[in-house]
Each structure stands twice: as C-alpha cells, then as structure tokens.
Amino acid sequence: MAGSKSRMPVAKTYKIYIGGKFPRTESGRYFTIDGGDGSVIANICRGSRKDFRNAVVAARKAFPGWSGTSAYLRGQILYRIAEMLEGRAEQFVAELVLQGVSKRRARKEVDVSIDRLIYYAGWSDKYQQIFSAVNPVSSPHFNFSMLEPTGVVSVLAPDDSGLLGFVSNIAPVIVGGNTTVVLASEQRPLCAVSFAEVLHASDVPAGVVNVLTGYREELTGQFASHMDVNAVVYCDAEADDAADIQVRAADNLKRVVDRVGTDWSSENAQNPYRIKDTQEIKTTWHPIGS
C-alpha cells in the first residue's frame, strides 16, 4: 500500500470475554501464539481459574433472562450472529491463515461456520415440538414431557478447529436457552476472541457466551468440577482425561457431553440431538376435569 511505510500498523490486543466485557485475565499472565515459522502472531491471555469463576457468575446471572426469551427471538439472534460473521468473513479467513490453515480450507471453515449458525437458528422454535411428548397414563391426568435448558454449560472447544469447532459447540447450547463459558482452542485461539466481538455486536445479552483463552491442562479440571455448572462438553480429551472430567462432573451430577472424534466440517456435526444434549426433560401431571 502506498505510504504504508510511514505508518505503524495497530495490532489487536486479544482479550477474554466475560459478562459482555473484554477484560484481560485477572492473573496478568499471557502466552504467545507463533505462526509456525518462529514469528510471534499474538499474545494471548492465559486465563486462570478465577477468570473461570467470574465467567460462571456472569453466565449464571444471564441465565434467567436468556432462558426466558422466546424461542423465536433466540433464533433471530442466532441469525443475526451469522449475518455479522458473514460481514467479517475476510477477517476470519485471514486470522485462520495466520494460524497456519490453508487459504482454501480457511474459506471453507468460515463458510460452514456461518451456515451452521443458520442451521441452529432455524431449529430454535422447532426442536421443542420434536422432542416433547404427551404421555399415555392410566389415571385422569394429562401428562406431558418437555425440554428445559439445563443452565450454565462449560465447553472445552476443540483444539484443531479454531472457529468452526467453537461455533459448532456453542450454537446448539445457546439456541436451547443455556448460557455458556467456553475455553477456546489452545493452539488457535484468535478466532474465538474475534468471534466474541461478533457476538457482542449481535444482540446476544451480556454473559450468555463467555470466552476464555488459556491452557487446557490448567483449566479442564475447573470446567468439570465447578458446582454451579450444569453440563460440561469436551471434544479432545484422551481416555484418562475424559475419565477425570466425568469423575469431577459427578460431584453435582453434571451432564457430560462427549464430542470426541467429531469431523466439524461434516454435515453429521449438526443435528437437533446436539441441542437436546444440554436440555432437561420436565414431565408434568395435570389433572383432567371430573
């Protein structure tokens, strides 16, 4: 670009996203992402368990409001996220390329991410009637079962798919009325932080999605053990780690959702059962007349 030599480019500070704000980690720590050739792409917040604790507080606070919005509105908001992502597609492609993804694959990852949001936006007011039921009972009762969001869901996003893996995991969680705290990919965290900016511009209420960056090893245990988290989703855990997550999750009977081995770019990575995975079934017995 002409005259670019006279100007120093302004680099973005990648921060975490908690309660609708972009703070730095309370721990003041960071780690660096390199571009594969030894160059430093960015400094990334090395989030701490206290950041996680704060994020869960924000998510819990946002839950009554978000779960109380109409299915239609949640769908509209997911659609809005897709619109915003579409408008910023080039930025995400560039960020993926910067993190070592080929141009062609980066383009596809962004496109599929947008489509995935549209997919779940469409399901927002439809999954309930698919999974709900009127149950036959041999007493004068009208008996029916329906879904309710489980609450705060902690998500350990996949490491290899910085954007698509992230989007594919949060969309079914929030479309069902849950709020979430997500640990971004450790290797490729840039897109998750930029995606938080997209969420921020899409009428997603503060605290519904909270994004942390940091080390898996340090934070996984916290994601699994926190008593105020109702479900934990993991995507990469080796057998030992998965067992550890399940043991920790058992303390307050969290739902444990195993997404290991998913090919995120595949059609199979999206279906309404993924919404149901973080829902509770409530059954009501309603007396019938005389």
Binding site: R53, S225, M227, D251
Partner: peptide, 8 residues
C-alpha cells in the same frame, strides 16, 4: 477446592 453453587 471446588467452586460452589448457590443451589446447595
């Protein structure tokens, strides 16, 4: 050593 919930 585990963060708590108001539910309990």
């Amino acid at each position: 050593g585990v963060y708590q919930s108001a539910d309990y």
